[in-house]
């Protein structure tokens, strides 16, 4: 569905300064996938999306979207993708149903089909009562759902969403996601989205492409990324400090264990297959008559993955480096 080779975008800011927003991205997305591009602000996510949706011409490299080249066949690409940008796709002085109708005829639906489809989408996105409302009178969550409806009017094989849930409260985010996943099932579409919400990428995407400084630094399922780049966090508390020291020596000998720390009665470490390992440790403690007070295994978050890949936390990074042409 998407195939890019060395996709690159430089922005010439001034004679002396060029921002290398995207530096040679190779990305393949198969039909039916749900892929999230995750990265801090300024990582090049939006710039990449804008190249894939024909809004920006790449400086070098190539991209084929839905079977067509974004530079030489932009019209063909545009007909086959639905796009939900960072802003509101629906004009603010328009009525919801009118914008959907215009969008439909734009893609070649007949007037009757366009009206019918607009009605169907308003229904399925819980906007039926809002058809005749002006876009400015809709809430943030409703506007966002309307934007998704706009992107789906022509039933495109590929839906591209640029930070679809930014600015929404948790309830509206969850609601939007419910709709996006339902639409995906109903239409069998490929979904590519960007997000800087870690939990969102974690729970929704089947595949996460981590982007930093314009490059892909990791690309896998959330679970595989965690196993590969972070490992589980093991925290064991014993009743006596002596017992803790004894168990810490055991943990230190495990292959692949990192960040082993002992503070008083508390031992923590990172290790793959944490649940299996912790069972082992409980067994060891039992055999050595070491009393345990508490045992925890925490799956890593994507933030741990990002931290291990870049040395920075995704939550903190990126603020000093605003995205160019956002």
């Amino acid at each position: 569905m998407i195939h890019t080779e060395g996709l690159t975008k430089d922005f010439v800011v001034s004679r002396k300064e060029t921002v290398h927003a995207v530096r040679g991205i190779d990305l393949d997305v198969a039909p039916g996938e749900l892929v999230a591009i995750l990265g801090p602000n300024g990582a090049g996510k939006t710039t990449t999306m804008r190249m894939l949706t024909t809004l920006l011409a790449p400086t070098s490299g190539s991209a084929r979207v839905a079977g067509f080249d974004v530079v030489t066949q932009p019209g063909q690409v545009r007909r086959r993708i639905g796009y939900v940008g960072q802003g509101n796709g629906a004009g603010h002085n328009q009525r919801a149903a009118d914008e959907l109708y215009s969008q439909g005829v734009t893609y070649g639906l007949s007037r009757a089909d366009s009206r019918r489809r607009a009605g169907e989408l308003l229904d399925s996105l819980d906007l039926a009562g809002k058809a005749q409302r002006k876009v400015t009178d809709l809430s943030g969550g409703q506007r966002r759902r309307l934007d998704v409806a706009m992107g789906l009017m022509h039933a495109p094989p590929l839906l591209v969403l640029d930070e679809p849930s930014t600015g929404l409260d948790p309830q509206n985010r969850a609601n939007l996601w419910e709709h996006i996943t339902a639409m995906r099932t109903a239409f069998d579409i490929t979904v590519l989205l960007t997000t800087h919400y870690l939990d969102e990428a974690d729970s929704m995407a089947e595949r996460v492409v981590v982007v930093d400084h314009g490059e892909v630094i990791a690309d896998d399922t959330p679970d595989a990324l965690k196993t590969q780049f972070a490992g589980d966090l093991l925290v064991v508390t014993t009743q006596e400090p002596d017992g803790a020291a004894q168990l810490a020596r055991v943990v230190e000998r495990w292959q692949g264990a990192t960040e082993v720390t002992l503070t008083g009665t508390r031992i923590s470490a990172r290790i793959a297959n944490g649940t299996t390992r912790v069972a082992e440790l409980v067994h060891t403690a039992d055999a050595a008559a070491v009393g345990l007070a508490d045992v925890q295994v925490r799956r890593p978050t994507l933030d741990d993955v990002f931290l291990n890949l870049t040395g920075r936390s995704l939550r903190e990074s990126g603020t000093e480096n605003e995205e160019v042409a956002a």
């Binding site: 949706t53 796009y83 802003g87 509101n88 004009g91 603010h92 706009m150």
Partner: peptide, 13 residues
């Protein structure tokens, strides 16, 4: 500013 123009640029118009 709102994003409607961008959305229209991605259509085949």
């Amino acid at each position: 500013q709102t994003g409607a123009h961008e959305r229209m640029l991605v259509t085949p118009l």
